[in-house]
Write a protein that binds this DNA or RNA. Structure first.
Length: 306
DNA sequence: AAGCTATGCAACCGCCTCGCG
DNA sequence: ACGCGAGGCGGTTGCATAGCT
């Protein structure tokens, strides 16, 4: 098979790096610059293989590495790039200054991948998970079966991005994917009417947390007029992100966001006083799910509502 | 308090790519 | 054109720690 790895030699240290080793490596690279990794360990007085040194430098010791939690923007970038590039971690890392491919890979595998799964999105294809949505082939092939039950099920599980992906997915089955979206909107309106869309805000034992920590943040992030649905969703997510940082509770970890606009889904749809907008923030935790639903009924200022 | 399990992440492994002689 | 080797990449492992029972 392939040649033996460069570090397959006796006497070379493996495992975690000691502070002394870090210091030796850093000092050597500061003086001579990175590169020539094969000879570097000997010259730097390290009993490591070159690969190990390169990895330690690029993933940990490099001075331009950004530490700390990934920002909302970084998460969005990773997800978007991954949907295009797949597991090309180094290419993705090149677009995020200060982040290493290893760090992004780990973050994807431990956080983002799981989050997408919870949102009903296949983390490999970035398409809605048909197994969860029970979108059988008969459903896809027969528009007549776009009944209220199916669509409400869809509404619960899909976020706008997933909805767009679903529309793309259905292009091969529908000559006009807009037809599907139109039907979805019609059914959402019907549902809203059925539920007597009064301003609703359901509180429970977590109400205090929301009032003190999330609601004020929402106010600061959400200008009332002239925001499109993308901005609105981003604002809500940023609010929760900020709340997570302030409270030390990872709200985002357990939440998914569904923006359901009863205006046409031509993107971006303007939000104004004549727009009835529903934002559903859902979670697997039943204690949160009811409490986190809120709606902006038609004609009501977002500020008034909040 | 002890044992078990889940999670996050640093580090390793093996294969691939590309430049050079 | 070919082989070799350094560097790079993505998948995987294993350890430390947190959380739970």
């Amino acid at each position: 098979m392939g040649r033996s790895p460069c570090c397959d030699k006796h006497g070379l240290k493996k495992g975690p790096w000691s502070p002394e080793e870090d210091m030796k490596l850093t000092r050597y690279i500061q003086m001579h610059g990175p590169g020539n990794w094969r000879s570097l360990p000997k010259n730097a007085g390290l009993e490591r293989c070159g690969k190990s040194c390169r990895l330690r430098w690029t993933n940990y010791l490099r001075p331009d590495i950004k530490r700390g939690r990934f920002s909302f923007e970084e998460e969005e970038t990773i997800i978007q790039l991954h949907s295009v590039l797949g597991n090309k971690w180094s290419t993705i890392a090149a677009k995020l200054s200060g982040r290493t491919d290893n760090e992004i890979k780990n973050y994807w595998n431990t956080r983002l991948r799981k989050r997408l799964l919870r949102m009903g999105i296949d983390p490999v294809t970035h398409a809605p998970r048909l197994d969860l949505l029970d979108l059988s082939s008969s459903f896809l092939n027969s528009p007549d079966q776009l009944n209220l039950s199916n669509l409400l099920h869809l509404q619960t599980l899909l976020n706008p991005e997933a909805l767009r992906l679903a529309a793309n997915l259905l292009t091969s089955n529908y000559q006009t994917p807009q037809l599907l979206l139109q039907k979805l909107q019609e059914n959402q309106l019907l549902k809203a009417q059925l539920q007597n869309q009064a301003p609703t805000f359901q509180s429970n034992q977590l109400g205090n947390t929301f009032d003190k920590q999330i609601r004020p943040l929402n106010r600061s992030f959400l200008p009332y007029s002239s925001v499109d649905q993308t901005d609105l969703m981003q604002s809500v997510q940023e609010s929760f992100h900020a709340a997570s940082e302030q409270t030390g509770t990872d709200f985002l970890e357990n939440l998914s966001f569904n923006s359901v606009l009863s205006t046409p889904l031509s993107s971006p749809a303007p939000l104004n006083s004549a727009t009835s907008t529903h934002i559903q923030v859902s979670t697997e935790d039943e204690n949160y799910s009811d409490f986190l639903k809120f709606e902006i009924p038609e004609g009501l200022d977002f500020d008034d509502f909040m």
